[in-house]
Design a binder for these strands. Sequence first.
DNA 1: TATTGTTATACTCTATAACTATA
DNA 2: TATAGTTATAGAGTATAACAATA
Lengths: 177, 177
Amino acid sequence: MKRADASHPDRRPGPVTRPPAVVEVDTSYLQTLLGYNARRAALAVIGVIAPRLAELGLTVVDFSILCTIRDNPGITSSQLCSTLNLLPPNLVGKISAMDKRGLIVRHPHPLDGRALGLQLTDAGVELMMQAEKATTELDNAAAGTLSPAEKATLVALLKKVYQTVPPAPQAGRVSNL
Amino acid sequence: MKRADASHPDRRPGPVTRPPAVVEVDTSYLQTLLGYNARRAALAVIGVIAPRLAELGLTVVDFSILCTIRDNPGITSSQLCSTLNLLPPNLVGKISAMDKRGLIVRHPHPLDGRALGLQLTDAGVELMMQAEKATTELDNAAAGTLSPAEKATLVALLKKVYQTVPPAPQAGRVSNL
DNA sequence: TATTGTTATACTCTATAACTATA
DNA sequence: TATAGTTATAGAGTATAACAATA
């Protein structure tokens, strides 16, 4: 941390009760924390992707949901929740909106009368083609200065972290980043 | 993605309009994305740390703020905002609460009459000793199966990402993770 | 004219409790 | 008794606009 030059006027020995102005901010401790760095990186990458998805009327979570439905036709809301770490009450509105928007269809589950199987419509598939193209491009762009090998290493280490960390008490959720 | 065995009853050729039950969920595409993995990892690590900090009456952002004030006595709110990527209106209430709580003091800035220099009180320093100890321990615990070398690599790569990614249009903020 | 700190406010996200229908 | 889907709602986080005081 660098400071403005206060050596001329107010020079005093001992602890300074009114510190001089801060010129350069020291965040060295925070930068040792995995949590701090992971949060900052996640916000940076998502900050690049989110505006583009917003143009398609999607949030990043909407995108994850539609991706998962596309790759797992017939999946239930309950399975989506545990896969993406969402709470059921927060998924209901999204699924309902996607249905109204004609992106997905719900049909009776073949094995469980309580559940509904989810599937993309043709419109949903088409929207996801655009969304996936944009997301893949921007995600790579956000990895910017990382070599392909570095990005692969980074992704592998991140997976190791969240696939190892004990899921929080009830279901593994904790407010915002 | 594995499915329940539907080969006996409803066997039909061609595209399946009512897919059988999903048994194992495929998230292989999402797992290629840096944004997805960084977000999941950040939520997992913070999910371990946040409950412990909550016992001390702090959020993870409160902790980052107090850390930064401690390591940069005399820092202004404006500097905190740009350092931690916060919006001024959202910082005001936190600073005010920390002041009322006796964790920090605000005094006139030596060089700028509009600004206030921030500093921890003795109580603030004491609270931060506990908070930092807990955070360091839990952050390391969350890095769990990673070797020290792997954690160092991970942190370095994450820094490279968020220190490189172009700060979003106005100031670099984008809602939640 | 630009910036610091601030108020007010809207919007989104996250979380809990409770209900119904079915297993 | 437990689970899937749902409703309602509380609480936290995030964002914009606008203002006074000062640079």
